[in-house]
Simulated scan of single mutants.
Amino acid sequence: MGIITMIVIGLIAGAIARLLIPGRQHIGWLATIVVGIVGSYVGGTLGSLVFAPHVFSVHPPVHHLFLGSIVGAVIVLLIFNMFRARR
């Protein structure tokens, strides 16, 4: 059940990140899920570093706040777009 939850949260966070970034991203729904899942880990890690500097751990994205997942997904999507623009 955790994998399904991670996929759903990844899809929602990735879709919201795509809506927040101006312009059109030419990625499919599977890449949106990956951006959301990776963004959840990025947001959770950044949240651990900023809000609890003495506790550095990486947990599955379902344990992090949803806002952190969206912020992380935006960061990952911006980095993805930067690399894609260089091609």
Rank of each mutant, 00 (worst) to 15 (best):
T5W: 11
S48Q: 13
V62K: 06
A17W: 06
T45E: 08
G39Y: 02
I33P: 00
A13P: 01
L49M: 13
I27W: 06
I4Y: 09
G14T: 01
I16M: 10
H54R: 12
S40A: 14
L30G: 05
T45Q: 09
V62P: 04
I33Y: 00
A31C: 03
H54Y: 12
A31H: 10
G47F: 06
P53A: 06
G10Y: 01
V50I: 15
A52C: 04
I21T: 10
P53T: 01
L65D: 15
L11T: 10
I21W: 01
I9D: 07
G2W: 01
M1N: 11
I27Y: 09
V62A: 11
I16G: 04
V58A: 14
L19C: 11
L65M: 10
G14F: 04
S48I: 05
S57W: 05
V55A: 09
I21D: 04
S40P: 04
Y41H: 13
G2D: 10
G39N: 03
A15P: 02
L46Y: 05
F56N: 10
H63L: 12
M6A: 15
L67D: 08
V38S: 08
I3G: 09
H64P: 00
G47K: 01
G14Y: 03
V50P: 00
G28A: 00
I33K: 00
H54G: 15
G36S: 01
G2R: 07
V58E: 09
I7Q: 06
Q25E: 13
T45D: 02
V58M: 12
G43S: 05
T32E: 02
G10H: 01
F56W: 12
T45Y: 13
T32F: 02
G23T: 07
L49R: 02
I37N: 05
I3R: 08
V50T: 04
G68V: 02
I3L: 13
V38W: 08
V38D: 01
I7W: 06
R18N: 14
L46H: 02
G2N: 10
A17Y: 07
I4M: 11
I4A: 13
